[in-house]
Simulated scan of single mutants.
Amino acid sequence: MHRVSELIRVMHIMGHMMGGGVEATVMNHYRHIDRDRVQFDFVVDSDSTVVPREEIETLGGRVFVVPPYKKLPLYSSACEKLFREQKPDIVHSNINALSVFPLRAAKRAGVPIRIAHSHSTANPGEHAKTLVKNVLKPLSKLYPTHLAACSKYSARWLFGDKAVDEDRVHIIKNAIDLDKFSFNPRTRSRKRAELGVTDRQLVIGQVGRMCFQKNQVFTLNVFAEVLKQRPDAVLVFVGDGPMRADVEAKIDMLGIRSNVRQLGVRNDVNELYQAFDVLMFPSTYEGLGMAAVEAQVSGLSVMASDQVPAQAGIIGRLVSFLSLDDASKWVAMLVSTAAVGNRSDEIDEVRSQGYSIDDSAEEMCAWYEHLMATTGVNA
């Protein structure tokens, strides 16, 4: 039986790291967890493009590189070998339906506590991806000893209604460092100057990986229509990903290059929210939507698709849910949006809904300790 005074080592399975929201959530918890009680290590695929190795190692963690999961036999054997050598107390997998593979390796290696964490859902439009997810979903409860999810919506998608209704899924919210996102008019002025926009120009932002899920091409189609009525409007993309070339091609095809700023992966997203007048969030599917939560802390209006869980609308007056089938409504709302430089932040309201990273990190720490105290070594 584990003694609470001992340091718990948790090995987080991250898959292909490239600066996305799931990685931000795990790193947020890692920065704020009591590392005298719990220490994280990270297992990343060799084709990862954004791995914060220096920060992880400064905080006392380690980064282990394995072959990409697309090379499944190599990936599985490398994971099993790693788990046998390092003997982590807990393996916590963050790769949704694909968690079946590292958790199978963890079980074979004798890891006593194995957590499958659902951060997302699926969309029929991603045919190949959704097929793989649907094949793997029935196996999702085969190898983990415990289940976790960012929301009940994503929990039901991967683990099924019964597991949720029986309270067998531990909810870990996409919590954030709320103070970082508090609104500051001086920050707004400085970031807008960096973007080359005036106080009165409409600035539309989108934060997220450039991929089918985040739907940047839809944003571009809408924005092209907005420019017909607001020709000085500016669209800012933050993020990178597999569809960047498609986004570039679309910008050129629409002839709107001078009105679009592509910033790539940034570490000042909290300040960029303050420069925006509205956040576009037209996802084709979401487990919750971290960017939407962050935006609301700084009092930023969010236009989200109706494929984003209602749970993401923490501040009701700030979030609008619109159908992806009716682009004209998106255009009309954006055209009527004013540049507002004196908005207020919503830290207290967001904290009351359980999104404070300090509270969430302590809760996660206590959960790990509870698992260690109550789980037998032969699970």
Rank of each mutant, 00 (worst) to 15 (best):
V100W: 14
L195K: 04
V217E: 09
I172T: 02
E194N: 08
E349P: 03
V132S: 08
V26D: 04
A148M: 14
G125V: 03
T375D: 04
R53I: 00
A109K: 06
M210R: 09
M1C: 06
R351A: 15
P138Q: 09
V197H: 00
M17S: 10
S151G: 07
V4G: 07
D277L: 04
M243A: 12
N94V: 07
A249Q: 13
F40S: 12
D232G: 00
R230I: 13
G160R: 05
V226L: 05
C79R: 05
I256P: 00
V293T: 13
S352I: 09
R209W: 06
S298T: 15
R108T: 08
I256K: 01
A366L: 13
D89R: 12
T121G: 06
H117W: 00
A366M: 11
G289V: 05
N259L: 00
L178W: 03
R168V: 04
G264H: 12
T198H: 10
R266S: 11
Y355G: 14
F321C: 01
E294D: 12
V51S: 08
N184A: 08
R168A: 13
I204M: 06
N123G: 12
F83S: 05
E23W: 01
I256Y: 01
P112E: 05
V100T: 11
M18S: 13
E362R: 15
I172S: 08
H370F: 13
F159L: 01
F223T: 08
V269P: 02
Y143W: 11
E248R: 14
K191E: 14
K107H: 06
V100C: 09
A109N: 13
V226Y: 06
F101C: 06
K137M: 07
P138N: 09
V132N: 03
P185H: 10
A155R: 02
D240P: 10
S154L: 01
G354I: 11
N134A: 11
T130R: 13
V335P: 02
R37S: 07
S118R: 01
M17R: 06
L74C: 10
D177K: 00
P102G: 07
M18F: 14
I315Q: 11
N94D: 10
F223I: 03
V236E: 08
T130V: 04
M1L: 05
L279R: 00
L220C: 10
A295S: 11
V38A: 02
V132Q: 15
M243E: 14
G15W: 08
K133A: 13
R168E: 15
A163R: 06
L272N: 05
V22E: 03
G20V: 09
P102C: 08
N342W: 05
L202T: 02
R104C: 11
K329S: 14
N270V: 08
F212N: 08
A175Y: 02
K137Q: 13
K141Y: 03
V234D: 10
L7N: 11
R351D: 15
K228S: 14
V278D: 03
V222D: 06
H32V: 01
A193F: 05
R186G: 12
H29V: 02
A295L: 06
